[in-house]
């Protein structure tokens, strides 16, 4: 195949699967007019869903970032038994269906779950409330940071860290001044990916949230509900909002990747 033919094939493929569909959402969204769009994303339910989505991401992302970095350090920099197991387990959410994730959490933290009743007796309700949504989101976002940081740690090796140690730096100082700056772009990329996933997660959240409008309804759940209620204009408007967040994420990803490759 000639170069032009290859290029055309790629464009047709990407066009059919990717570009045209995304463009269509925007067309659908704004065809009823900007005013209609605005009023459907400013209903009390939509505003609550928007803030809840951001809240969940704001709690989830720091948790998975810290956990991802610690796990990466354990996997690459120690010889502890079980570090290989950790590597597989932390990758697991990547391959597990969101529905399974949701079900799994319900079975442990739900009303009849393993830990649910004990938690309920001290007043903590996980399932059908915000903590459950956070837990589900943490589960699905778990792999991103570790997956990005592990190869960077392997690549840089431990020479710089050992050099810092011989110069008198404590482990904490070495981590803050040497390790963290070295992995910062991998970490940033992992954080951006986690954020995107946290905002966009649907399946796992839909199982654990209970979908109470104005309480436990996130943006993605709102999209589904509106669609099921034959309010497709409203569904597209909420989708567009998510798409705008996605595009912002995408641009941040590109920026971070550029920075990382230039390093």
């Amino acid at each position: 195949m000639s170069r032009i033919a290859l290029r055309l094939t790629m464009f047709v493929y990407l066009g059919l699967v990717l570009i045209v569909p995304v463009a269509m959402v925007l067309v659908r969204t704004f065809s009823p007019g900007l005013g209609a769009f605005w009023s459907s994303v400013t209903t009390p339910a939509a505003i609550h869903a928007f803030w809840l989505t951001l809240l969940v991401a704001a709690i989830t992302v720091p948790i998975v970032a810290v956990l991802g970095v610690v796990a990466a350090l354990v996997i690459v920099r120690t010889r502890l038994p079980g570090r290989r197991l950790l590597e597989v387990v932390i990758d697991l959410p990547f391959a597990i269906s969101p529905v399974v994730v949701g079900l799994a959490l319900v079975l442990v933290y739900g009303r009849d779950g393993w830990l649910g009743p004990a938690l309920a007796s001290v007043g903590i309700h996980m399932i059908f409330s915000v903590p459950g949504i956070v837990l589900a989101t943490v589960f699905v976002c778990l792999p991103f940071v570790a997956r990005e940081v592990v190869p960077v740690l392997r690549e840089i090796g431990d020479d710089q860290e050992l050099a810092a140690a011989t110069l008198g730096a404590s482990r904490w100082t070495t981590f803050i001044r040497i390790t963290l700056p070295s992995i910062r772009w991998g970490l940033a990329y992992g954080i951006v990916l986690s954020t995107a996933r946290a905002i966009g997660e649907f399946g796992a959240v839909s199982v654990v949230s209970g979908k109470v409008s104005g309480k436990t309804e996130t943006l993605t759940l709102l999209v589904e509900k509106r669609y099921q209620n034959f309010d497709s204009a409203g569904a597209y408007a909420a989708s567009a909002l998510l798409a705008i967040i996605a595009v912002t994420t995408l641009l941040t990803m590109t920026y971070v990747q550029r920075k990382a490759s230039r390093q």
Partner: peptide, 9 residues
């Protein structure tokens, strides 16, 4: 984009 766009969208 498919990584960034929510699946429901």
């Amino acid at each position: 984009l498919p990584f960034a766009l929510p699946t429901i969208v």
